[in-house]
Amino acid sequence: MKHATIEKSIPLMSILTLLMVMVGGLVEIVPLFLIESTIENVSGVRPYTPLELKGRDIYIREGCYNCHSQMIRPFRDEAERYGHYSLAAESKYDHPFQWGSKRTGPDLARVGGKYSSLWHQEHMRNPRNLVPESVMPSYSWLEKDALDYADVGDRMSALSMVGVPYTENQIKNAIADLEAQATPDSDTEAIMSRYDEKIPLDNFDGNPKKITELDALVAYLQVLGTMVDFSSQQAKAQ
């Protein structure tokens, strides 16, 4: 078919353009339908607890992602420094995910449990108290500002619409669960039965009297990358 023929016939050109766009569309869209086969089948990944979810919102609000990625790539230097490379399954409940490769600060995909909550409190107050060469800004207001968590149940409902499997029970008890996680000497049986035995429980901000934004943020940081047990054979196979 001569190019001049196509160029001069609007209907023919429209049909051929449509076909071409469809090929491009299929290449981009078809993998999305096959995503189930892309996500590794590992156990342990659960939706965030209400407190962790609020912490994640603060993480996004403060723009932490501008300097910190949450994606350990399968390279030796990254595996040696940060641990096992990230699995797709580990961010399947993240909306939006926090992947990336721009690292002004270190990758945080497996920062959970690496430092104590005390360390995080001091570090948020002034990072240079602990890491003299750090260029991270101070986030000292987080430990002063009370956490506004009246809407956490609504946020969980919204996430459940895009596929995060929050149960009705979890959404209904969101506020009680949030308070329990930040108050480790309270009754934590209920939240542990609703989420997981090994959820982090702590006075994350070091102040038992008040639930602050720092409580939420540190709770979120303390769970990152800890859900999959990489010592198990099943995870090793991935």
Partner: peptide
């Protein structure tokens, strides 16, 4: 750096506050 520096500081400078 991975395990001890969180408390003892980078390079082992320590922290009086804690």
């Amino acid at each position: 750096g991975d395990n001890c520096a969180p408390c003892h500081g980078s390079g082992g400078v320590g922290s009086k506050a804690h």
